[in-house]
Design a protein around this nucleic acid. Structure first.
Lengths: 168, 168
DNA sequence: CAGACTGTTCAAAAAAACTTGAACAATTCC
DNA sequence: GGAATTGTTCAAGTTTTTTTGAACAGTCTG
């Protein structure tokens, strides 16, 4: 029926808006986040004025439900904030654009929880390994579990460094 | 019919094997890789002896196709290698266990390509932005695109540092 | 070289993830 | 208060991703 180009398309986006949205759609995909997040953040990022939920629905051509949930997640990640001083019943959103904040939010919401749950699983694993009666096997398990522990530890050390490097 | 515990289950895995497999299933999920990769790598990681494709099929209870493809991906990532000195027609696999190698492979296969494609998209974006006739708009675009460029640059700088920190 | 064995491929099936949309709650405005 | 507006929720629908399994290619073995 209409242009067979990209998946994200809606006659309401200019060429540059479309390209930036696509850029972020790819970006969030790498991070394992749903495409709608990339669309929403991308459009906010390339908009001079804050946008309302309805603006996003109309311009992106996606459902109200998606935008509502997407905005919530983005807020949780610290990637968007509500704009102040708008004389309107609606809430308007603008993007956070400093890398430090973005990276920090991503680490806090997406990385840390997994690191933490990993650490607790490791504890459990150590207990299970202790049950082994064969000494050779036991030594092998211990060696591998120690390695896992060192990986987790490195990961934990890495995060602050990451934030330091990216947030300047 | 049988135990209703976890999704990965097959009477062929010991408790510790099962736990390690689950650990890695979670791990690869964070990285956006399919669960079968975690199962395969996890079982290899906690096995004293190298395992053949058929060993993995039997112990994990997943299809030959999955294991075949999974091993290929893991080889590409540098996460498993073929064991030497096995007097058997089959190929046996063992895990790579140094973090440096694992991280390096992941960066090479999963991160770099996206960074590179992002950079080329940015070039295209700059061209599109140059078409804008409104000077205010043009300035806004330029500012945002510069920001994107700085993000990409930071990302590029980060990778070697990452490898340095993790690979010791 | 025929049969057995190992491993790959890829179309179809299954599972997982995401999006939609309609019902609903909450708020504002007259 | 009642109508209008804004935003949320979540079951159902859709899309995407992963897994399966059967056909096939390649290789070894007797």
């Amino acid at each position: 029926m209409d242009s067979p180009t990209s998946k994200t398309q809606s006659e309401n986006l200019s060429s540059i808006q479309q390209q930036v949205v696509d850029f972020f759609v790819d970006g969030v995909r790498v991070l394992g986040l749903p495409r709608s997040l990339g669309e929403i953040y991308g459009l906010l990022f390339i908009s001079q004025e804050p946008l309302s939920l309805d603006d996003l629905v109309q311009k992106l051509g996606i459902s109200k439900g998606s935008v509502s949930q997407g905005l919530r997640t983005l807020k949780t990640l610290g990637a968007v904030r509500e704009a102040e001083n708008i004389n309107d019943r609606r809430t308007y959103y603008e993007p956070a654009t400093d890398l430090k904040r973005l990276v920090g939010g991503f680490i806090r919401e997406q990385i840390r929880p997994h690191l933490d749950s990993g650490k607790s699983k490791l504890q459990q694993l150590n207990q299970t390994a202790a049950l082994s009666s064969d000494p050779t096997e036991r030594a092998f398990f211990d060696e591998r579990l120690e390695r896992l522990e060192s990986w987790m530890k490195r990961g934990g050390q890495l995060l602050p460094i990451l934030q330091k490097i990216l947030g300047q």
